[in-house]
């Protein structure tokens, strides 16, 4: 098969970079926090590496998200209990939002 344009050249478009929107959000939050000086890239790499090499094998972005939760707690940007409470609040918000409408915290 002859590619008709550069978008079909092998190696450029064989898969999406993010499988789900939350992965893109989690990725970008780390870049944003680093840009804002919340942690160094070395600190991030070490946190992510510890998570990836931990006892639980998970998909890459699951590790990424867990590492993000760890580093924001280590850096005291927020606490694990605040994150837990806020997660429950989002579940509650979803449960009272009619399907198809944007979910907002009360």
């Amino acid at each position: 098969m002859i590619p008709s344009d550069t978008h079909t050249v092998p190696g450029f478009e064989d898969e999406p970079v993010f499988e789900e929107p939350w992965q893109a959000q989690a990725f970008a939050m780390v870049v944003a926090l680093h840009q804002n000086g919340a942690f160094t890239w070395d600190e991030w790499a070490a946190t992510l590496s510890a998570e990836i090499h931990g006892p639980t094998k998970r998909p890459y972005y699951d590790h990424w998200l867990a590492a993000l939760e760890n580093i924001v707690e280590q850096k005291r940007l927020t606490s694990a209990s605040d994150l837990r409470k806020r997660k429950v609040a989002w579940h509650d918000a979803a449960a009272r939002t009619p399907h198809g409408q944007p979910i907002r915290l009360g």
Partner: peptide, 25 residues
């Protein structure tokens, strides 16, 4: 008829809403 968030989606929303309220992102 109501919405449902996956657990992972709720975790990401929790991070984003808390960190932006506090001005970190």
């Amino acid at each position: 008829e109501h919405s449902h968030l996956s657990d992972i989606d709720a975790r990401v929303r929790a991070l984003e809403s808390l960190l932006s309220e506090k001005g970190y992102i």
